[in-house]
Design a protein around this nucleic acid. Structure first.
Length: 825
RNA sequence: GCCGGGGUGGCGGAAUUGGCAGACGCAAGGGACUUAAAAUCCCUCGGGCCGUGAGGCCCGUACCGGUUCGAUUCCGGUCCCCGGCACCA
C-alpha cells in the first residue's frame, strides 16, 4: 500500500482548489450567507504560530459552513502600512513599498501552503493607492460630518518611534509597540471625534450577544462612563469668571473646603498673573508638565499642591475656599478642576491633612457622629446630610438629585455624564501611511482635498541614506500644491493617518474589492455584512475592535451601510506558548509553521493546533503532541486505504449484527458531537477527539470481524463519515481519501453528514446502582426500563441484595438510563 | 482599590441539563511482531489500603462550610493565579 506523503497530496489538492477557484464567493440570494473573517495580518514577511492558529480556526468554520450549505465569504488581505516597513527600509536599503510587496508574496505563499480556503479574488492591501484612496475618502466624510478636527493639545509622543500615539496605543505610560515611556508634547494634531459616539459604543455592547464577556467589559472600562454633576463655582477675586467642576458626589457639595486645578488648566496663568505667587505657581506647573505619563498617572506619586492665592465661591453657600494647582488633577478628564471634599473622599482627605486644609463632615453614617478633627479616613458610604443648610436630613442619594436640581434652577450646574474615552488622535509623523487629504492655504485656511483629486499619493522614490525614512515634509513635490479653493500656492498636510484607520473598514472593502465609485458597493455590503464570525487576538479588544465599531456607526449614520455593528460574533483566540512562555526569538522557543509543514504537512499542524486546546484558551506547544496528531492522520490514512476494498462487497450477503449496530451508534453519535462542537461551541478539541473515537471504533470493528463477514454498507458509511467530518480540519487528507473511496467530486461539495437519532439509542444500558450515593454495583438493563422496574432490578442485584440485608430502604431515586440510588438507614 | 476569567492525574485537556470524575491525546511502564531498529498492535496508567486471586474499601476536582438521595457543576466564605481599568474627581 502507498504510504501517507503529506507534502505530495497537499500540493496536489492546493493546485486543484486554485485551478477550480473553489473558494470563490458570489452574491446568491437563494442561500443564507455567512461571512467568516480572521483579522488580517501585518505583512511582516513570516507567518508565526499565532497566525497559523487564527487561520486554522477560521478555515475549519469556513469549510464546515460551506458543507452545511451556506454561501460563505472568506477573504484575506494585508494591513500593510506601518512602522516596521520603515525600519526595514533603513536596515536593508529597500523602499517600504517594495519590502511590503515582497513580504506579502511570501506570506501569501505560506497561507496557501496551509491550505486555507480564501477567496483570493477579494484580496486587499491597505497600502495600495486603490485602497487608501478610500481611506482618505472616509477621512473626508468624517471631516464633512464634523468628526475630524485639528487642535493643539498635549499629546503622547514616542521618542523612539518619533511619532505621536493615540491613548489606546499607550499601555501603562509606554508605547504599545516599542515599550518606550511616552512623553507629553504640545502639538497641533488631527483627531477623530469618537467621543461623540461614546454613549452608543457603550450601549450597543449589549446587542453583541456573540461577543465574549471579557472583551465587552474591557470596552466598557475603556469608555468609562460616569454619572455626576457639573457645578460652576465663582471666583472671589474675578467676579466675571467661573470655574466649572465635575463631581460624582454633588451630595457632598457643602463639604468642599478647597479646589484643585490641573497644571494645564487654562485659568491658572490668569489667576496668578502679576501676583507674588506667580513665580512659585508657574514653576510648579512647569515641573508637573515635564513629568512623563508614567510618573504623572501613577497612583503612588505623592500628591502635591500649591496655593494660587485665589478663592472659589461655593454656589450653594457662598463660601470662599482656596484654589490650588495640583499634580494629580488631569486636564483630559471632566473639566480639569476638582472640588476637594476631604471628609468624604480618601484622596482629598490625605491631601487636606498634608496641607492643613479643613475637613468638614456633611454626610453622617446612620447611628454615628463623625467629626472632621478625629476621623482617620474619609467616609465614602451612605448617610444623612448635615451641615448642608436646607438639605440637612436628606438621605445622600436623594440629596444628589435635589442639590443638582437646585443648582440647575440657579443656573449654576446640571446633571452631566462624563467619559474616560478621549478623541482618537490619528496624525502620525511618519512616511509609510495614508496621507491625510488636507491642504493649507494662506488665504483659504484648511481646505479638504476634493474627492476627484484622490488619492493623495505617497511619493514612491524614497531617500534611504539617513537613519530614518524622511517624513512627507521632506518632499517638496508632495508638499507644494495649489489651493483647490482659490488656486493660489498652498501646502499639503504632511502627517499620515494611524494605520488603525485603514483597518477600521477593510471588512467592508472585501465585499467589493475592485469597486471604483465608492469605498464599497452598497448592494454588496448590504448582502454580505455583518461579519458573522470574526476571529482574532484579544490584544485588539480596545484598539481595532472599538475603532471598527466607531467607523461602522459613522457609516451607518451617513446611510452607507445597513448595519450598526460590524461583527456579530467574535472569537478571541488565545496565544501560543512553548515551555511556559510566549514564543519569541529572544527566548529561543519559536516553532515556525514552515518547519511543521515541511516535516509533517499542513494537515498535521492544523490538527494539532486545534486539538491541543479550545480556541479561546492559551495553547501550550508540544512537539510530542504534534507527533501524536501525525500518527493519528497516518492511522486514518491506513484505515481508509486498507479498508476501502471492504466497502464494496456484496451487500445482501452481509448480516446486520450487534457489532454493526455498535459501530453505527458510535458513528452517528460522533456525527452529532462533531457537528454541535463546531457549530455551537467552537470546541474543536473535543470534536477531534470524537473523530478519534470513531476511528478507534472502526479498527475495533475490523478486528472483531477479522474472519470476514463485514457489512459493506455499514463499513462504507463509517469510512465516509470519518472522512467527511475530518475534512474541515485536515482538508488535503480528506480530499485524497474521499477520492480513493471512489468519488470524483471534491469532498467539499458534499453535504455535511446527518445523524439518525434512532441509531443513537442503545437497546441496553448499564445502570449504576448506588447506596447512599456511593457506587455499589452495576447492571445492564433494557433502555426503556421504568423507574419502578429499575428499583426492583436493583434490589434483586446479588451484591446489592447482600448489602441491603437487614436494612430498611428509606428512599429510592431512579434516573432512567443513568442510575438508581437507594438510601438506607 | 474596582471589574472580569480561572484553579481537575506526570502533562494538554474532557465531563453540554446536578447523576459512574479523569473522555481523547501526550508522556511513562510492560508485552507482541522483528536478526535488529523503525513503524504497528495489545495491556497498565489519580492516590492510599485490604486480598494469593477474582475483587473490595477509603480518599480525591485549590481550601472551609451549606443545599441535595446525589455537587467538578448550585449557594456562602477563604486562598492563590491570570487579564483589564485606575491620582478619573
Amino acid at each position: 500500500m502507498d504510504s501517507y506523503k503529506p507534502r505530495e497530496i497537499e500540493q496536489k489538492w492546493q493546485r486543484c482548489w486554485e485551478e477550480q477557484m473553489q473558494f470563490r464567493s458570489e452574491r446568491d440570494p437563494a442561500r443564507p450567507k455567512y461571512y467568516v473573517l480572521e483579522m488580517f495580518p501585518y505583512p511582516s514577511g513570516k507567518l508565526h504560530m499565532g497566525h497559523m492558529r487564527v487561520y486554522s480556526i477560521g478555515d475549519v468554520l469556513a469549510r464546515f459552513l460551506r458543507m452545511r450549505g451556506y454561501n460563505v465569504i472568506h477573504p484575506m488581505g494585508w494591513d500593510a502600512f506601518g512602522l516596521p516597513a520603515e525600519n526595514a527600509a533603513i536596515e536593508n536599503r529597500i523602499s517600504p513599498a517594495v519590502w511590503t510587496e515582497k513580504n506579502i508574496a511570501q506570506m501569501k505563499e505560506q497561507q496557501k501552503q496551509l491550505g486555507v480556503s480564501y477567496d483570493w479574488e477579494r484580496e486587499v492591501n491597505t497600502s495600495h493607492p486603490d485602497y487608501y484612496r478610500w481611506t482618505q475618502w472616509l477621512f473626508l466624510l468624517m471631516y464633512r460630518r464634523g468628526l475630524a478636527y485639528k487642535k493643539k493639545a498635549p499629546v503622547n509622543w514616542c521618542p523612539s518611534c518619533q511619532t505621536v500615539l493615540a491613548n489606546e496605543q499607550v499601555e501603562g505610560g509606554a508605547c504599545w509597540r516599542c515599550a518606550t515611556p511616552v512623553e507629553t508634547r504640545e502639538l497641533s494634531q488631527w483627531f477623530l471625534k469618537i467621543t461623540d459616539y461614546a454613549e452608543r459604543l457603550l450601549k450597543d455592547l449589549s446587542k453583541l450577544t456573540g461577543w465574549p464577556e471579557r472583551v465587552k467589559i474591557m470596552q466598557e472600562n475603556w469608555i468609562g462612563r460616569s454619572e455626576g454633576s457639573e457645578i460652576q463655582f465663582g471666583i472671589k477675586e474675578f467676579p466675571e469668571l467661573e470655574l466649572r467642576t465635575f463631581t460624582t458626589r454633588p451630595d457632598t457639595l457643602f463639604g468642599v473646603t478647597y479646589m484643585v486645578l490641573a497644571a494645564e488648566h487654562p485659568l491658572v496663568r490668569r489667576l496668578v498673573a502679576g501676583t507674588e505667587r506667580e513665580k512659585e505657581v508657574l514653576e510648579f506647573v512647569e515641573r508637573v508638565r515635564r513629568e512623563n505619563e508614567i510618573q504623572r498617572t501613577s497612583a503612588e506619586t505623592e500628591k502635591l499642591g500649591v496655593f494660587t492665592g485665589r478663592h472659589a465661591i461655593n454656589p450653594v453657600n457662598g463660601e470662599a475656599v482656596p484654589i490650588l494647582v495640583g499634580n494629580y488633577v488631569v486636564m483630559g478628564y471632566g473639566t480639569g478642576a476638582v472640588m476637594g471634599v476631604p471628609a468624604h473622599d480618601q484622596r482629598d482627605f490625605l491631601f487636606a491633612r498634608k496641607y492643613g486644609l479643613p475637613i468638614r463632615v456633611v454626610i453622617q453614617p446612620p447611628g454615628e457622629n463623625l467629626s472632621g478633627d478625629t476621623m482617620e479616613e474619609a467616609y465614602t458610604g451612605e448617610g444623612i446630610l448635615v451641615n448642608s443648610g436646607s438639605f440637612n436630613g436628606l438621605p445622600n442619594r436623594e440629596a444628589m438629585k435635589k442639590i443638582t436640581e437646585y443648582l440647575r434652577e440657579q443656573g449654576k450646574g446640571d446633571f452631566k455624564v462624563t467619559y474616560r474615552l478621549r478623541d482618537w488622535l490619528i496624525s502620525r509623523q511618519r512616511y509609510w501611511g495614508a496621507p491625510i487629504p488636507i491642504i493649507y492655504c494662506d488665504r483659504c485656511g484648511t481646505v479638504p482635498v476634493p474627492e476627484e483629486d484622490l488619492p493623495v499619493e505617497l511619493p514612491l522614490e524614497v531617500e534611504l541614506s539617513g537613519s530614518r525614512v524622511p517624513g512627507l515634509e521632506h518632499y517638496p513635490s508632495f508638499v507644494e500644491t495649489s489651493c483647490p479653493s482659490c488656486g493660489g500656492p498652498a501646502r499639503r498636510e504632511t502627517d499620515t493617518m494611524d494605520t488603525f484607520i485603514c483597518s477600521s473598514w477593510y471588512f467592508l472593502r472585501y465585499t467589493s474589492p475592485g469597486y471604483t465609485q465608492a469605498p464599497f458597493d452598497k448592494k454588496e455590503a448590504d448582502y454580505w455584512m455583518p461579519v458573522d464570525q470574526y476571529i482574532g487576538g484579544i490584544e485588539h479588544a480596545v484598539l481595532h475592535l472599538l475603532y471598527a465599531r466607531f467607523f461602522t456607526k459613522v457609516l451607518y449614520d451617513a446611510g452607507l451601510v445597513q448595519v450598526e455593528e460590524p461583527f456579530s460574533r467574535l472569537l478571541a483566540q488565545g496565544m501560543v506558548y512553548k515551555d511556559g512562555a510566549k514564543m519569541s526569538k529572544s527566548k529561543g522557543n519559536v516553532v515556525s509553521p514552515d518547519e511543521i509543514i515541511e516535516r509533517y504537512g499542513a494537515d498535521t499542524g492544523r490538527l494539532f493546533i486545534l486539538f491541543a486546546s479550545p480556541p479561546e484558551k492559551d495553547l501550550e506547544w508540544s512537539d510530542q503532541g504534534v507527533e501524536g496528531c501525525h500518527r493519528f492522520l497516518r492511522r486514518v490514512w491506513r484505515l481508509v486505504k486498507e479498508g476501502r476494498a471492504l466497502a464494496d462487497g456484496e451487500r445482501d450477503a452481509a448480516v446486520m449484527g450487534k457489532e454493526e449496530k455498535e459501530l453505527r451508534r458510535i458513528i452517528h453519535s460522533g456525527i452529532k458531537k462533531v457537528t454541535e462542537d463546531i457549530q455551537e461551541r467552537f470546541n474543536f478539541n473535543t470534536a477531534i477527539s470524537a473523530i478519534m473515537e470513531m476511528v478507534n471504533a472502526a479498527y475495533n470493528y475490523l478486528h472483531e470481524r477479522e474472519k470476514g463477514g463485514h457489512h459493506p454498507a455499514v463499513w462504507r458509511e463509517a469510512l465516509e463519515s470519518i472522512v467527511l467530518l475530518l475534512a474541515p480540519f485536515a482538508p488535503h487528507l480528506a480530499e485524497e481519501l474521499w477520492s480513493s473511496l471512489g468519488h470524483r467530486e471534491s469532498v467539499f461539495f458534499q453535504p455535511w453528514p446527518e445523524y439518525d437519532p434512532q441509531l443513537l439509542r442503545r437497546e441496553e444500558v448499564e445502570i449504576v446502582i448506588q447506596i447512599n450515593g456511593k457506587v455499589r454495583g452495576k447492571m445492564t438493563v433494557p433502555v426503556d426500563c421504568s423507574q419502578e422496574e429499575l428499583v426492583e432490578l436493583a434490589r434483586g442485584h446479588q451484591r446489592i441484595g447482600e448489602l441491603l440485608q437487614g436494612k430498611e430502604i428509606r428512599r429510592a431515586v431512579a434516573v432512567p438510563g443513568k442510575l438508581v440510588n437507594l438510601v438506607i438507614g
